[in-house]
């Protein structure tokens, strides 16, 4: 064994993380080795705190330390407007706009027929219960514009349509700061179809 047992063990654990290969794992392990004991304790406590304190919101399934989460608990948010997103990362991306005042429903995944991920594997039932029990006026489909996201949106829209709720989806089009000549045909087609009045 080239490394001591404890160093080898830490490298092995780092390698399990997404995007971390052998070299990066070694680099991180040597970084941990050279920091002070106090810093190492802070790092390990941060990981333990994350694992013990973070849970899912019982209403929207967002990651939170208090249940319900700050968004669901906030009376100034519009609770009749629900934006359906795939995961907490998508929720954070929309929150960063600072303009959305409704609430969210995090599905914790998307439907993927090719991978056998069906409606029972993500939080669609919870969304339906929430919509049926509360006075919801609009549901915004905020899933990604790929095959899985589209399948999920179509499936949920099909379940919601008998309830007479307004169902909308995020507009799709040309990203800001790019040249139209480099946009692909599908994006441009969607942008043309979803054009808005000046």
């Amino acid at each position: 064994m080239i490394y001591s047992e404890s160093l080898q063990e830490l490298i092995k654990e780092f390698k399990k993380m997404p995007g971390i290969g052998e070299k990066n794992a070694q680099r991180l392990a040597f970084y941990v080795l050279q920091i002070s004991n106090e810093q190492a304790q802070k790092l390990s406590m941060a990981i333990i705190n994350l694992k013990t304190r973070i849970r899912y919101c019982s209403i929207c399934s967002n990651l939170t330390e208090v249940d319900p989460c700050a968004i669901c608990h906030n009376p100034s948010r519009d609770h009749s407007l629900i934006c359906v997103v795939e995961d907490p990362k998508a929720l954070i991306a929309i929150e960063k706009t600072g303009q959305y005042k409704g609430v969210y429903h995090v599905l914790m995944g998307t439907l993927s027929p090719l991978d056998n991920i069906g409606p029972d594997d993500i939080r669609i039932k919870e969304l339906m219960t929430r919509v049926e029990k509360n006075d919801v006026k609009e549901v915004i489909m905020g899933t990604s514009p790929n095959m899985e996201g589209e399948t999920t949106s179509l499936y949920i829209a099909r379940l919601l349509s008998p309830l007479g709720i307004k169902i909308t989806r995020l507009a799709r089009g040309v990203p800001i700061g790019t040249d139209i000549e480099y946009a692909d045909e599908i994006t441009l087609l969607n942008a043309l179809e979803g054009r808005t009045k000046f």
Binding site: P113, L114, M147, E150, T151, L154, Y155, R158
Partner: peptide, 15 residues
């Protein structure tokens, strides 16, 4: 891509 029965059927064919 805009009708669920069509999308599910087409995905079955490629699968």
């Amino acid at each position: 891509r805009v009708e669920l029965p069509k999308l599910a059927a087409a995905l079955y064919l490629v699968d």
